[in-house]
């Protein structure tokens, strides 16, 4: 999985942020390219550019190997994201693409998946219960 981060800051500001702050939070600094979306042109295409504030709000997009957007999450700036949930979704999409199975609510690697078909109609309760996840 590759990560790209984007904000409207210049790449020069990204450099100093990495050196002055991020490298003190993450050993060696963040290991992915930090992109400059100067003017918000990219954020506009992704529906996350705040015209009034002139910045990209928090938005993250999971893109599959065919270049198709599989998931998006957009938040107002006050609340940070949850990396565990991001990784769970990436693993779920990777599993789905590989196996053709589908993953029920709250799925984690190793927990049951579902195989859609006529015999599963009305029988999901036999295969999957919320207590599997939320015990």
């Amino acid at each position: 999985m590759e990560v790209l981060s984007l904000s409207t800051d210049s790449r020069f500001v990204h450099k100093i942020w990495q050196e002055e702050e991020l490298s003190k939070m993450v050993d060696g600094g963040v290991p992915f390219p930090m992109l400059s979306d100067a003017g918000g042109k990219i954020g506009r295409a992704y529906g996350v550019y705040d015209e009034a504030a002139g910045v990209d709000i928090r938005g993250r997009f999971i893109i599959d190997p065919d270049g198709v957007i599989r998931a998006m999450e957009v938040l107002t700036p006050e609340v940070g994201r949850n990396v565990d949930e991001l990784l769970r979704q990436v693993k779920a999409f990777q599993h789905v693409v590989k196996t053709g199975e589908v993953t029920p609510s709250g799925w984690q690697p190793g927990t049951p998946t579902l195989k859609p078909g006529p015999s599963l109609v009305g029988k999901v309760w036999k295969e999957w219960q919320p207590r599997i996840i939320y015990k």
Binding site: V3, W17, E21, R58, I63
Partner: peptide
């Protein structure tokens, strides 16, 4: 972005460097 064709990619937008969240 198209340089990453064939790979899973996560792109993250955020309001700004040196902000607090």
């Amino acid at each position: 972005l198209s340089d990453y064709a064939g790979k899973w990619v996560v792109i993250c937008f955020y309001p700004g460097d040196f902000t607090f969240v």
